[in-house]
Amino acid sequence: MNAWILAIVQTVLLLLIAPLLSGWVKWVKCKMQCRRGPMPWQPYRDLAKLMRKEVVLAEHASPLFRATPYLVFSVTVLACSVVPAFTIGLPTAAIADVIVLVGFFALGRFFLSLAGMDIGTAFGGMGASREVTISSLAEPAMLLSIFTLSMTFASTNLNNMVHFTLTEPFQIHPSFIFSGLSLLLVATAECGRIPIDNPATHLELTMVHEAMILEYSGRHLALLEWASMLKMLIFGVLITNLFIPWGIALTSGFVPFSVGALSMMAKLMGIGALLAVSESVLAKMRLFRAPEFLSLAFILSLLGMLSHVVLEVH
């Protein structure tokens, strides 16, 4: 019973810090570009404002359009409860392994792109088709790097993966470098960050994610925004904890849990700052160069798998 409470606490905490991460990235980015920038907690105010606003629905919106924000949000929260963030050994880890986690994201994306096309505006359909194109290229790379990791860990369960790294003596795996890099590239594509998509603009020529949710307003929009912040947080947690799991709580109890939470915050701040730096130095790519970017991710994950087979297996 205690473990279930911990699991719920962890999920709620992750839900609550997701806007903070997105605000932090924006703040660091502004500081790097010598602008004042909104404070890191600005996303909370935005979400609260959107929650209070009235929902405006298009005349021809189907029930699917109305259900999608709740569906996407709940699927993302479910995904969020699965990742080992502050502590391992939670009962929620048995819900899904890492392949199902990828499936959760695909499910959310499926409904989001359907909803984008539902209203029948040009932008929604355009955004949906772009999103599906990009994700169909990103998913093989992500799965391949995950397979590389699970070949090393002999498990696809995230809990076991993190536990393995912590209990074995320190080893340098050449394949992890490639898988890590590949996952970073995939994460930028999946979260719609800069080389692929710019979350800060609503320029019709370039937007991908924003184009799909253009017709949403009020609490629907708030839920979708929150879900996308949460998705970024999940990717951050996943990448940091798979490769740098040190600090995460191995035993249950209040003190290890808080240590795990604090170290997780520090890691997230680090990876958020890294994202802000990369977004400041890189320019957004043309849409037609996105396949090149993602094929680089695929080649990296393929190299990771090859170097596992060639170098690490005796």
């Binding site: 080893q171 340098i172 795996h173 050449p174 394949s175 470098i177 490639f178 990296l300 190299l303 170097s307 170098l311 690490e312």
Partner: peptide
């Protein structure tokens, strides 16, 4: 292990 990593990096 470091040598193996360097080998992987050279391949990269």
């Amino acid at each position: 292990q470091l040598i193996l990593t360097l080998a992987a990096l050279m391949l990269f």
